[in-house]
């Protein structure tokens, strides 16, 4: 059957070949037009000695960890709560999911204005949380927390939705049996709900971690990598090397690092969770 070939060819041209090319280009010098010059290990030697790359890698990993630690508990709490059958929850869920309807760019532009120390609410609310002049984006830790917060605002609804769908599928007999045994709600959460949600935790974590490694619009539109490089994560560093400084070869070397980190993360999660064993319900029939 030739049905699979068009998809394979298409995917090869626009995803696999670029993946190979990014490694090849990392050994060249190319300003984005004209000839591509072979430069051997130059970019890699520069990358190893580059303080900014080390700093960026650290920021990227810190952002990914903070993202996971804030969004996972929030998403589980909201998802489990929204899975309840009470009527008011349906109305509230409608509001919860509103950020899903906006693009990253729209959300970033929105918060950029909220955080403006002259016009936005940062002016009035900043002093309450330790920024007397309201200039939250002007400090390194403030800007970092803003990126963590904005991406939680954007993504918690989606992950809640995954947990809500999964929590609805937990058989109610399990809870009824536990109630008869006199278990409290806290026990039930740890002993029934969470174990039943384990595959969803894996799926959601992979999406969350890989997604946060490639956060780009949020940083570009809110902080521009600043202040002083405090939010310059790897994708942003790659972008400015390639499309602002026009050093495509060096940008490719940074991109290669990014690919390796992203792949390593997803392989680790998949390996340690048995995700690949998940198959169709009719498997083996």
């Amino acid at each position: 059957m030739g049905y699979v070939l068009p998809a394979v060819v298409f995917f090869t041209v626009f995803a696999v070949v670029p993946l190979v090319l990014v490694v090849v280009l990392s050994f060249t010098s190319w300003p984005g037009f004209g000839d591509i010059r072979w430069t051997g290990l130059d970019n890699w030697e520069r990358l190893i000695g580059d303080e900014r790359v080390r700093e960026s890698t650290g920021i990227t990993l810190a952002l990914t960890a903070s993202t996971w630690l804030t969004q996972t508990p929030m998403a589980i709490a909201i998802g489990v709560w929204a899975a309840g059958r009470q009527r008011n929850r349906a109305v509230l869920s409608t509001i919860f999911f509103l950020p899903l309807l906006m693009s990253s760019a729209a959300i970033a532009v929105l918060f950029h204005r909220f955080l403006d120390p002259n016009y936005g609410m940062a002016r009035d609310l900043g002093p309450l949380i330790g920024f007397p002049d309201g200039n939250i984006l002007g400090t390194a830790h403030g800007a970092f927390l803003v990126i963590v917060f904005v991406s939680a605002w954007q993504w918690v609804p989606f992950h809640s939705l995954l947990y809500q769908a999964a929590a609805r599928n937990v058989p109610t007999v399990l809870y009824d049996a536990a109630t008869i045994d006199g278990a409290g709600r806290w026990d039930m959460f740890w002993r029934i709900t969470l174990p039943q949600l384990r595959y969803t935790v894996v799926t959601s974590s992979v999406i969350m971690i890989v997604g946060s490694l490639i956060t780009f619009e949020t940083v570009l539109l809110i902080t521009g990598g600043g202040p002083g490089g405090a939010t310059r994560i790897l994708p942003y560093l790659m972008y400015s090397a390639g499309f602002e400084a026009f050093e495509m070869g060096y940008a490719s070397a940074i991109a290669t690092v990014l690919v390796v980190v992203a792949t390593a993360f997803s392989l680790l999660i998949v390996r340690f969770s048995g995700f690949t064993k998940m198959r169709s319900t009719l498997e083996g029939m």
Binding site: F11, V13, F14, A15, V16, V17, P18, L19, L21, V22, L25, W30, G32, V210, L213, I214, F216, P235, M238, Y239, G242, M248, A251, S252, A255, T256, L258, V259, A262, T263, S266, L267
Partner: peptide, 17 residues
């Protein structure tokens, strides 16, 4: 395997293509 390829990371070769 393709699930793990981040689109942002291959933007330079895509630009070339």
């Amino acid at each position: 395997l393709g699930l793990a390829i981040p689109a942002q990371a291959v933007i330079v070769p895509l630009y070339l293509i």
